[in-house]
Design a protein around this nucleic acid. Structure first.
Lengths: 197, 197, 197, 197
DNA sequence: CATGAATGAGTTTTCATTCAT
DNA sequence: GATGAATGAAAACTCATTCAT
């Protein structure tokens, strides 16, 4: 039945969302299969029915998180006609999006710090992160290329921007929101980028 | 009596260095007390004699790592008379130091990503990180203030620099060394900072 | 209606044969219901429709194995007119059959060792084995009685022969085929039996 | 300390003996680590302290069983001066020993059937069985060689005897003691061997 | 009849921690 | 101070069995 497949997909999503919720409280390692099951409201055996192992859940979760972020980017791009924006407008738009949805989204940053750490010791996870960052940088480079002729320079700027954003995301999680005037720093950086391009 | 204290301190250091070594292989959670003891070359019972718990080892370890880094900074500062350097010389010096000792020191970045992650779920660790980043930013701000009059601007630049460096450190660990031309990006950023100041 | 019964019987055989195949790889305990179902090419739920439990499958399987062996014996007897054979001919015939079909049939011996083990802890299985061995010994006794007058002696010889064959079957499985010259030993034993009778 | 080593050896024996006891009730697979611990009167964690895994316990157990049997054989040989016995005396002695200590020792046979079964699917166990049977056969061959000149014939007889004894051991466990007149069969076999040699 | 989702008891194993020697 | 034996809670995972569809 078609319904079967849908139920499967739904159950999987239910479990991945439960893990998402658990990761707000505890690290992946400290989160037990039973914890996830409890939050998902299902029997713990079910998790082993839908996923091969705890590690398999993790990998699927990471794919889901990355896919979710990509979907948001797509949606954002779909809303506006980027080609019609001038440099300042474009930078303002992109910073607004990244700030609100990514850098200052503490629960997302939270999860990414977790994924970074797992990536240190887990090649499969690291591979996924690599992929994601390459795609992100490439996309940004392609946008920026509209304003600068030097392709290499465009990529260089893109790498810097993403590194900066990730550093700021880290700060927004580690350091009290008020300890640093993060919004201010982001604003100034934005101005600087406009000048540079 | 004095000697005894020293022996104790030495033993503690021996254990913390063993943990340092272990963290190159496995996460803190995956590293067992017996793993650390084995690497330290001592009986595992000893670890509970010198430290209250595994978590206590961690906290002491983080203090040790941060202290170690501070000592390196101190040593670096001690070597040169910063006040005699002009802007370009100063920036070049500081980047050379940060790049070699911090940002491109993969095994250090490795450990810091681990500490970030622990900090997410552990207030005591997060507190230490906060402290460290505040001190780092403040120190940088004080140096930069020599070249810019606006104190707020100086701090803003400092935060940006540290965020950028941490993002680059992350990339150097997560992304293949050759995947991104990290040295090139760092060099360009350096130039940009000189222009700005 | 009749057809339905036949389909049921066929399905059961399909499952029992699947177990037979599984037992070449893993012990009964290590073989899961789903393993059997996979090999049988049916849904695992079906196994619980046709059999009350995993243990019930086992009991039916043992009956099937024993029945299969009996059928082979019947077939062999049907082929020749035993009454016309003289002592030497008879012994040669029976040894040829036992050696080829039973003692040196490693996959069969394999399964019987498994059944012996189950029989140790399972009265129902032990009961079936008892039955089988009694029948086998009795049959052999009746044949041998043609050549010896003492009924008790005939039975005694029969028990010895079966015990010897089972011991040799064990060796053929446990010990490398080449480690012992099993064929040679069987041949000498055969000669000795002819002398004795 | 010397004492430490002894305690270790004692604890290990305590655990192996507990397994021995458990195997009288359930198969190795059905016997859980906690079952063994319960019977041994120790915490289940201890079993993992002294042995690497459940499989490691098994292997050590098998070594212990085989070693125990060898010790019995050694002791028996030590008691008498075999070289002084004539053929009949020797055969009578050896049969008396094997019958009482091995073939008719139901709890031992019990355990060996279990080990045979494990050996089917476990190369390490099979290897140990092979070793044991080769040693047994070789020893028997060396004794018998005193009475027959043909070395090959002596080995052939030895293999037959061991196979027969193992088959009879199986019967003594599987078949009710009274179902077959096992003692009688063993006696006749003994007579026959004396005639042959 | 067939399917496969769900259950939950049970298994091996790990490990921080304690403590007697 | 050191040692290593012992404890017991908790983990991931398996699987026979049930049952709604």
């Amino acid at each position: 039945m078609m319904a079967r497949k849908q139920v499967q997909a739904q159950r999987k999503m239910q479990i991945l969302r439960a893990l998402d919720s658990c990761l707000q409280e505890k690290s992946f390692q400290q989160t037990s299969i039973k914890d996830i099951a409890r939050v998902a409201g299902v029997n713990h055996g079910v998790l082993h029915y839908y996923f091969a192992s705890k590690d398999d859940i993790l990998l699927n979760y990471i794919d889901y998180v990355i896919e979710d972020y990509r979907a948001q980017v797509k949606e954002w791009i779909g809303d506006k006609d980027i080609t019609k924006l001038d440099k300042r407008e474009f930078i303002e738009e992109i910073f607004a999006f990244i700030n609100n949805k990514i850098t200052l989204n503490r629960s997302l940053s939270h999860i990414f710090i977790e994924i970074w750490e797992i990536g240190i010791y887990n090649e499969a996870v690291r591979e996924r992160l690599r992929h994601m960052y390459f795609a992100w940088i490439q996309e940004l480079t392609s946008y920026i290329s509209r304003f600068v002729s030097d392709e290499k320079f465009a990529k260089n700027i893109s790498v810097s921007m993403v590194a900066f954003w990730e550093g700021m995301a880290l700060f927004s999680v580690i350091i009290d929101p008020d300890g640093l005037d993060i919004a201010e720093v982001l604003g100034r950086f934005q101005e600087r980028i406009i000048e540079i391009l």
